[in-house]
Design a binder for these strands. Structure first.
Length: 107
DNA sequence: CCACTGACGAGTG
DNA sequence: GCACTCGCCAGTG
């Protein structure tokens, strides 16, 4: 899993109340165009990892549907709302407002 | 080695 | 909005 460490360290920097997209995380982790690897790295996480996994959403600003409909999507939205993130129509988060914009430090 | 499956994303019709 | 296709690539059988 050493391969995913760069991805995890990026996610650890996302502040509460903000979200980042899979592609954005991949980019910041130095893996441009490999958004899929981010999803793969997150899927390998244990259910209650201390990583703020809920702050990673897809490019539409929506919680990505899991293949194993375990209901975590609802939990994720709940956790985000609890941090102050508001959802718009179709359960989409307005990325123009909530997208995390890191300073040119971790690149 | 091959085939298939993904918490993705951009593009096309 | 919907349905594909393609590019990406780790993990599994």
């Amino acid at each position: 899993m050493n391969r995913y460490d760069r991805i995890y360290s990026v996610i650890r920097r996302i502040p509460a109340g903000r979200v980042a997209t899979y592609g954005q995380v991949a980019m910041l982790a130095g893996l441009p165009g490999q958004a899929r690897m981010v999803g793969y790295a997150l899927a390998a996480l244990s259910a209650r990892s201390r990583l703020p996994w809920q702050r990673v959403v897809n490019a539409q600003g929506r919680v990505s549907p899991r293949s194993s409909g375990s209901g975590v999507e609802a939990l994720q939205r709940m956790m985000l709302r609890r941090e102050g993130v508001r959802f718009g129509a179709s359960d989409a988060i307005p990325l123009a407002i909530y997208r995390w914009r890191p300073r040119i430090a971790g690149r």
